[in-house]
């Protein structure tokens, strides 16, 4: 995945069964962002792989004051890349569950 300066990782072990997974997001390189992020650390949240979109979560993070609105796309892309990797891994490891 492209280095967006925003890191997203699983915050729990993925067993491929739950559609809602815990993710953790933090800024690795603030220089890649257009606005100044709130200096708050790692943000943990639950993401539903079946019902939600990365754009929804990114928008809620902007509205909650974690990021400037000009960075909504980069935050969404960071989440989208991680979600795609999780879904790819699920299909590969647990194809029968998907």
């Amino acid at each position: 995945a492209e280095d967006t300066g925003v890191r997203v990782e699983l915050a729990e072990e993925d067993h491929g069964r739950k559609s809602a997974i815990a993710l953790r997001l933090w800024v690795e390189d603030p220089k890649k962002l257009k606005g100044k992020p709130k200096d708050s650390g790692a943000i943990e949240f639950t993401f539903d792989l079946e019902r939600e979109t990365p754009e929804d979560v990114a928008q809620e993070m902007i509205e909650s004051g974690f990021f400037h609105e000009s960075d909504v796309k980069i935050v969404a892309k960071s989440i989208r890349d991680r979600v795609a990797l999780i879904q790819w891994r699920r299909k590969r490891i647990w194809p029968a569950l998907q």
Binding site: D29, G41, A42, F45, T46, V57, M61
Partner: peptide, 27 residues
Amino acid sequence: SSLTQVVHSAGRRFIVSPVPESRLRES
């Protein structure tokens, strides 16, 4: 370490914790 919780009006909960030093990139 301290945890902060932010709840968005749509109901999503964001839990904020310090990033461990080992996870920060060297610049």
